[in-house]
Computed example of a mutant assay.
Amino acid sequence: MRIAIAGAGAVGRSIASELIEAGHTVMLIERQPQQFVPETVEGADWVLGDACEVSTLEDSGLQLCDVVIAATGDDKVNLVLSLLAKTEFAVRRVVARVNNPANEWLFNESWGVDVAVSTPRILAAMVEEAVSVGDLVRLMTFRQGRANLVEMTLPPDTPLAGKAVRELTLPRDAALVTILRGERVIVPQPDDPLEPGDELLFVSASGAEPEIRHALGVDGGDAETTP
């Protein structure tokens, strides 16, 4: 894929390096001359210009990109670029970085954002996941909050120990996608037994989380969420 990244700071450069290593063609757009350092990511095409200017985007060939990543440290810039990429250049997929969690509600389809990535929220979710056992934790949201990745680590006294995956009475809008057991990543099969310490990862509609909790024998309301 051809991917454009706006913002050649530490975040943008790191993303670019990972994507190039994965075999993608990457273009970095940076407006600050002091951060325009092509030798830091030699495999990328570099463009010096303002990603909020239509002329810059036209000259750089944004219309040829499959994905645009708005990764600057300014939420206003990321929103404007997302909207331009989607409405003016018909980019199929737009990913935007959210710097201030208070602005997260803006990063939706109305602004051309397909996927919003909030670093503070992800970090908080990872911390919570690391310390929570026996409760449902929401790790990530998809499709503007309509679907979530949720996780539960089965406690030592789980009533599910020894039960087969097929015995989980999950709601229709939820799926157990992975079991992490020690160093193993298990694609769950109906007859696979569950064990204490298993980390279960589900993809579900937001409204299905209370039913997942019930199926896992967790009392209480909605899934734990990050601030």
Rank of each mutant, 00 (worst) to 15 (best):
residue 132 S to F: 12
residue 153 T to I: 09
residue 180 L to F: 13
residue 159 P to T: 01
residue 158 T to R: 02
residue 134 G to Q: 07
residue 128 E to M: 15
residue 138 R to F: 06
residue 170 L to Y: 03
residue 175 A to L: 00
residue 164 A to M: 03
residue 153 T to H: 04
residue 124 A to E: 15
residue 147 A to Y: 09
residue 129 E to W: 10
residue 156 P to G: 10
residue 127 V to F: 04
residue 152 M to D: 02
residue 124 A to S: 14
residue 178 T to R: 01
residue 122 I to M: 15
residue 159 P to Q: 07
residue 179 I to M: 07
residue 135 D to N: 14
residue 165 V to I: 01
residue 150 V to W: 03
residue 136 L to F: 01
residue 173 D to H: 08
residue 165 V to K: 00
residue 139 L to P: 07
residue 168 L to Q: 09
residue 150 V to P: 00
residue 137 V to T: 03
residue 132 S to H: 12
residue 132 S to E: 12
residue 124 A to M: 14
residue 132 S to K: 13
residue 139 L to M: 07
residue 184 R to H: 13
residue 167 E to K: 06
residue 164 A to V: 02
residue 183 E to V: 08
residue 154 L to M: 03
residue 161 A to S: 13
residue 175 A to Y: 07
residue 134 G to N: 09
residue 155 P to K: 03
residue 181 R to G: 05
residue 148 N to C: 13
residue 158 T to C: 06
residue 146 R to Q: 14
residue 173 D to G: 08
residue 143 R to P: 11
residue 125 A to P: 06
residue 150 V to F: 00
residue 163 K to T: 12
residue 138 R to C: 15
residue 150 V to A: 09
residue 182 G to F: 00
residue 154 L to V: 05
residue 160 L to K: 04
residue 163 K to D: 13
residue 167 E to L: 03
residue 129 E to S: 14
residue 128 E to C: 11
residue 122 I to H: 13
residue 166 R to C: 03
residue 175 A to R: 09
residue 154 L to G: 01
residue 128 E to L: 15
residue 122 I to V: 15
residue 182 G to L: 05
residue 167 E to M: 00
residue 169 T to C: 11
residue 182 G to T: 10
residue 152 M to Y: 12
residue 161 A to Y: 10
residue 149 L to T: 05
residue 170 L to F: 01
residue 145 G to S: 06
residue 158 T to F: 02
residue 136 L to N: 00
residue 134 G to D: 02
residue 141 T to Y: 07
residue 180 L to M: 10
residue 172 R to L: 14
residue 147 A to P: 10
residue 153 T to R: 04
residue 135 D to F: 11
residue 183 E to N: 09
residue 177 V to F: 08
residue 164 A to R: 10
residue 142 F to V: 07
residue 169 T to S: 15
residue 153 T to V: 12
residue 135 D to P: 04
residue 137 V to S: 02
residue 133 V to L: 10
residue 142 F to M: 10
residue 161 A to R: 13
residue 177 V to H: 00
residue 152 M to N: 04
residue 154 L to S: 05
residue 146 R to D: 14
residue 137 V to P: 00
residue 136 L to S: 02
residue 150 V to M: 07
residue 164 A to H: 11
residue 130 A to S: 15
residue 155 P to Y: 07
residue 157 D to W: 09
residue 164 A to I: 02
residue 129 E to P: 02
residue 146 R to S: 11
residue 136 L to R: 01
residue 158 T to E: 06
residue 176 L to T: 03
residue 161 A to E: 13
residue 132 S to L: 11
residue 139 L to G: 02
residue 175 A to S: 09
